[in-house]
Design a protein around this nucleic acid. Structure first.
Length: 490
RNA sequence: CGGGGUAUGGCGCAGUCCGGCUAGCGCACCUGCUUUGGGAGCAGGGGGCCGCAGGUUCGAAUCCUGCUACCCCGACCA
């Protein structure tokens, strides 16, 4: 275990903060609320990007890029949208600096005021729909299926590395369709892409659902989400997909001629996931020994540590291990062979353990004698001695097993921490304990708000394919037809 | 944005209340020797204008004012 590392039980949020820093994922920057994503953390993001990008391409999308700056007037075109984002926008007002007449550095040149101020994008719907207007004339231009990888800025009051920063990286898909049904299908399709990604790559079980009106994206008709449960019992929204109806088409006058030669507004979706997923990844699997990464997203899947006293011993180890490394690489397994003589083996063990490398191999004179190798797995912290003959197959299977074990563990945790409650007393007690709480709700904004005020719990979502059952609202006792998912959330 | 806390070599801290000689400790770093299967040992060494900007004073890490950043709790939010 790392020296001076806070345990989860001791102080969960401190554990998280220290982990991000000490595992070399990211650090705070000179700019308030903005983070530096360090190489190891960025590698995780790259792995997420490449998996997601492939899934987007496989579902017919292509990438494009739209500007960082949005004319201020664009934002106000869609009433709900501006309402939702106005309070957290960075604004560019000038385009030039000049030397300070007092001789100290530079000042904003008051002469260089922009005619129309520019907003740093908090999301790109407005600039994109203003652009789509020119791209879409006919039903033959539809559907338009575009994604962009970008940074966005939301001027948050309180920030935490990865979970909430003023600037973050994400992807945002923006699609246009000729029918409502098709747009709705698209929103659901991408929600499914996100849940597949979360479960199969991040080993994070998620609940797919619909947001209530108060949690809905500003400007959307319907917001779908995937919700995960973190180890401290708090929920985290890991991705959203919006059915935008014709809201943006109307705001930006995007019409197409249908087959009957009639003008119609197009139907839209948008969907996104961000670097927040890295926060979710950390909080789902990591432990008091440091980071635990699922093999499919780990920058280093296998760390190999030779144990040697001198050059000759290292040579002998190399003879055995280098061909194995080559084989592993051929299998697309990412390997780090740490043969530095500047750090001791014990130091390296701790290092890779803390950084969450799924599999660690150690090979020294003893192993050479017995033609075997020590294999340690990060998820269970177990070690075994394995014969060198079929070692690559063994590792290949081990990586799959670790991926599955992590998912299973996270799923078991969620199952154990998801409960149905019937009374207000149970509800309050359960929310206090943490986890997902299934409860009846009368469907009103007022009740939702009251529950939030009383317990800090929010409705995370109305799960898709929810089973209908008659019941009474946990707060008001009014009739309800289904349970909704409550939790305290990030 | 409101309340509370913190800021001293790369990291973690002491010193600050009660101003005073050269600002100290652990880790990390450098050199050498011995070591190497879970964060090695010994010896020697380098690195600080004490967050920033003003002020008080013969003299400021220490007192005063302003600012900035980070952490915790609220409000807001992916």
């Amino acid at each position: 275990m790392a020296k001076n590392f806070t345990s989860r039980e001791d102080n969960y949020s401190q554990w998280y903060n220290e982990l991000v820093i000490k595992a070399d994922l990211a650090e705070n920057s000179a700019v308030r609320g903005c983070m530096v994503i360090k190489p190891y953390g960025y590698s995780i993001w790259e792995n997420m990007q490449s998996a997601l990008d492939k899934m987007f391409k496989d579902t017919g999308h292509t990438n494009a890029y739209f500007p960082l700056f949005i004319p201020k007037s664009f934002l106000s075109r869609e009433a709900d949208h501006v309402e939702g984002f106005a309070k957290e926008c960075a604004v560019v007002t000038h385009y030039r600096l000049k030397s300070d007449p007092d001789g100290k550095g530079v000042i904003v040149d008051p002469e260089a005021k922009l005619e129309e101020e520019l907003i740093v994008r908090p999301t790109s719907e407005t600039i994109i729909w203003d652009t789509y207007k020119n791209w879409i004339q006919s039903y033959r231009d539809l559907p338009l299926l575009i994604n962009q990888w970008a940074n966005v800025v939301r001027w948050e009051m309180r920030t935490r590395l990865f979970l909430r920063t003023a600037e973050f990286l994400w992807q945002e898909g923006h699609t246009a369709h000729s029918t409502e049904e098709e747009a709705m299908e698209e929103a659901i399709r991408m929600l499914n892409v996100y849940s597949d990604f979360a479960e199969n790559f991040m080993a994070l079980p998620v609940v797919k659902g619909i947001k209530t009106a108060s949690e809905r994206f500003a400007g959307a008709v319907e917001t779908f989400c995937i919700e995960g449960l973190m180890q401290d019992g708090r929920a985290l929204q890991a991705g959203t997909s919006h059915f935008l109806g014709q809201n943006f088409a109307k705001a930006f006058d995007v019409k197409f001629l249908n087959k009957n030669n009639e003008q119609e507004y197009v139907w839209a979706t948008s969907w996104g996931v961000s670097t927040r997923l890295i926060g979710a990844l950390i909080m789902t699997h990591s432990d008091d020994h440091g980071l635990v990464l699922p093999p499919k997203l780990a920058p280093i899947q296998v760390a190999i540590i030779p144990i040697f006293r001198n050059e000759e011993e290292l040579e002998k180890i190399n003879e055995k291990i280098l061909p194995i490394i080559a084989q592993l690489k051929k299998l697309n397994i990412s390997v780090k062979y740490d043969d530095r003589d500047t750090q001791k083996p014990g130091w390296k063990f701790n290092e890779y353990e803390f950084k969450g490398v799924p599999v660690r191999l150690a090979i020294g004179p003893r192993d050479l004698d017995s033609n075997s190798i020590e294999v340690a797995r990060r998820d269970l912290l177990t070690k075994e001695i394995v014969p060198l003959d079929n070692i690559t197959e063994h590792i290949e299977k081990l990586l799959v097993d670790i991926q599955n074990t992590l998912y299973k563990k996270a799923l078991d945790y969620r199952t154990e921490n998801t409960v149905d409650v019937y009374t207000w007393e149970e509800f309050v007690a359960q929310i206090e304990k943490g986890g997902f709480v299934n409860a009846h709700w009368d469907g009103t904004d007022e009740t939702e708000e009251k529950i939030k005020q009383e317990t800090k719990a929010t409705i995370r979502c109305i799960p898709l394919n929810n089973k209908l059952e008659n019941g009474k609202c946990v707060l008001t006792g009014k009739p309800s037809k289904q349970r909704v998912l409550f939790a305290r959330a990030y």
